[in-house]
């Protein structure tokens, strides 16, 4: 468990908005992506909650998305289990109903212990930027992406995103 404790401390220093000593680029980048990454209760570091920003230049821009993180007792040998808030994420690699994410590094086979919660958040953020329609969980969106119908894609996503009960902390 000392690994999660260390991560927790690292996350606190990296993501704290008023912290002055994070002047390296990596930390800045994480601050651009992650607005919130915290254990649900500080007495149990296996359950976390996170919120990431939608990448600019995508329909997700100016929206924020909540994630549930669960670290198995074998973490970091085994990957954390991560879900979006159900019914909040219209994305071809996310199951809209459950929020389950299809991402290779979240599978046992491709996960390596060198990843941590922050880098994983970044990987999910990159998935928002570059959807992979060839292994879809949301077939409808993947099909629109495949035929490259940009206006339909944007329209559909905007419809979902405006209707979804996701946190309305848009700026």
């Amino acid at each position: 468990m000392s690994r999660l404790l260390k991560e927790y401390k690292k996350i606190q220093t990296t993501l704290s908005p008023n912290s002055t000593h994070h002047n390296n680029n990596d930390d800045d980048e994480f601050n651009q992506i992650i607005t919130y990454l915290h254990p649900i209760s500080t007495s149990d570091l296996t359950h976390w909650q996170a919120q990431i920003k939608g990448p600019q230049g995508t329909p997700y821009a100016n929206h924020e998305f909540q994630l549930q993180i669960e670290c198995p007792p074998t973490y970091p040998i085994e990957p954390p289990i991560i879900h979006f808030q159900p019914l909040s994420m219209p994305h071809c690699n996310v199951n809209f109903q459950t929020g389950a994410i299809c991402l290779d590094i979240l599978e046992k086979q491709h996960w390596t212990p060198a990843w941590n919660l922050m880098t994983t958040m970044k990987a999910i953020w990159i998935l928002l930027k570059d959807p992979v329609p060839d292994s879809p969980l949301n077939v409808d969106i993947a099909n629109i992406l495949r035929v490259n119908d940009q206006s339909a894609y944007n329209g559909l996503l905007n419809y979902y995103l405006s209707a979804s009960p996701s946190p309305s902390t848009t700026k």
């Binding site: 000392s2 690994r3 212990p113």
Partner: peptide, 28 residues
């Protein structure tokens, strides 16, 4: 950096220089 423990230990690394303690490598 895997188990985040500081200790006197045997480590392993390839030419890439990514070095971890043997315990973590064994689990992996």
């Amino acid at each position: 950096i895997i188990c985040c423990e500081e200790k006197n230990t045997d480590t392993f690394s390839l030419e890439c220089g990514h070095e971890y303690c043997l315990d973590c490598y064994r689990h992996y």
